[in-house]
């Protein structure tokens, strides 16, 4: 039994779009770099939900493979991002992005 035909692809689309928008809003309005990092993760996971839903809808496994790629890349990205954050924290004692004002004009 195909779950997509019961729930409808639109619900998944809306769920992913809302999660993605929450992530975008977080990136744009939060000032703490760690929370921004988590919001980016939220965006990527919204995309993952969408890929899996479409993959089941089309009965095509490529979308699920893509999710593995995204998960692997997101893990690498977070590792690099946290490393940069630690560097920042050591040098400035804060992860607030408003403190980044060295580079202007």
């Amino acid at each position: 039994m195909n779950i997509i035909s019961e729930v409808g692809i639109n619900s998944y689309l809306w769920l992913a779009a809302i999660l993605f928008s929450i992530g975008v809003m977080g990136v744009l309005f939060r000032r703490n770099a760690i929370i921004i990092l988590m919001c980016i993760e939220l965006m990527l996971n919204a995309v993952n939900i969408l890929f899996v839903a479409f993959s089941v809808m089309h009965n095509n496994p490529a979308g699920q493979i893509m999710v593995f790629f995204i998960m692997a890349v997101a893990a690498a990205e977070v590792a690099v991002g946290l490393a940069i954050l630690i560097l920042m924290y050591r040098n400035m004692g804060s992860v607030d992005i408003d403190t980044m004002k060295k580079l202007k004009w």
Binding site: V27, A33, I36, V80, G81, M88, M100
Partner: peptide, 8 residues
Amino acid sequence: EAGLKYFL
């Protein structure tokens, strides 16, 4: 700062 901005 450049690295963090670029990353985010």
